[in-house]
């Protein structure tokens, strides 16, 4: 071909410049993030020192000490592990159900209507409101918690994934059909990757809903877990007025949220949808 000399260098410079720009941006974003967290910690410390009432507002350093203490000498680590264990079970079960549901909805008009209607009904219903009913049905225990967790994840995840499948560009569909792809191969190699930005956002929303639902459930019906979870840790220490430990428990909730958001979801996005130019960073 005659014009590759004219075209290629432009694109080559463009892509390397973008890579450079990106890494610089990521570095500075990290710097900004640390700066924001440090400022918040400083303000907190100042406010606590000024208030001088550890019972109402323990300082940042007191909270960190309580966190360290809780991890080493108390059951903070095992409570966190217990919460996470239940969370992962409920989350994975909901994802499995969601994928089955969405697959059926993509293939069949009646299932599609069922999905849309059920999502519209159940998505606005707070999962925690189902806990009393769940405990009536399944008793005090893990099953009840998993039931509400599934409820909190299934609908937003199914909705996001279904929307993602619906908005796969016609060109991608035609390309897949042009190769003679059908059934599971068509879904696996065309629909899922093309809908990945929506699927990932469904996973993120589902995770956030699951985490807050679980902590709330443990706070309200703390004993329902076989071992006390993180919510129960917070509730128990609040009853005994160990406010610094309450703060330590809350910090733990936040930390895990941050780790999953930045360590897991952002990392997955960086090597998939953002690398492919399907989502802006």
């Amino acid at each position: 071909m005659t014009d590759h000399i004219a075209e290629a260098p432009i694109a080559a410079t463009g892509s390397s410049a973008r890579r450079l720009h990106w890494s610089a941006l990521r570095r500075s974003a990290m710097v900004r993030r640390v700066l924001v967290l440090a400022t918040l910690a400083l303000l907190w410390q100042l406010a606590a020192t000024f208030t001088a009432s550890p019972l109402l507002l323990p300082s940042f350093t007191q909270t960190m000490t309580a966190l360290w203490d809780g991890l080493l000498h108390e059951n903070l680590a095992s409570a966190t592990a217990a919460s996470l264990g239940i969370l992962i079970k409920g989350y994975l079960l909901a994802l499995l159900l969601g994928l089955i549901f969405v697959s059926l909805a993509t293939a069949n008009a009646l299932c599609r209507e069922a999905l849309i209607t059920l999502t519209a009904m159940f998505n606005p219903l707070p999962a925690i409101a189902l806990l009393p009913l769940a405990m009536l049905w399944f008793g005090l225990g893990e099953t009840s918690l998993i039931f509400v967790l599934v409820h909190s994840v299934l609908w937003p995840f199914a909705l996001a994934t279904f929307t993602g499948f619906q908005s796969v560009p016609d060109t991608h569909r035609l390309v897949g059909r042009n190769y003679g792809l059908t059934g599971a191969r068509y879904v696996g190699s065309i629909l899922i990757p093309s809908a990945l930005p929506s699927i990932l956002s469904g996973l993120k929303i589902g995770w956030a809903f699951a985490w807050r639902t679980l902590i709330a459930a443990e706070l309200v019906f703390g004993v329902s877990a076989s071992q006390g979870g993180l919510g129960w840790f917070i509730f128990r220490n609040r009853n005994e007025l160990f406010t610094d430990k309450v703060f330590a428990g809350l910090i733990m909730v936040i930390l895990i949220g941050l780790i999953v958001e930045f360590g897991l979801f952002r990392a997955i996005e960086a090597v998939t949808v953002r690398r492919w130019g399907m989502q802006r960073g």
């Binding site: 290629a8 694109a11 080559a12 892509s15 492919w276 130019g277």
Partner: peptide, 12 residues
């Protein structure tokens, strides 16, 4: 004439 961009992603 695209020998140089085989490892790039289409959006570039």
């Amino acid at each position: 004439g695209l020998a140089r961009v085989i490892k790039d992603y289409p959006h570039t």
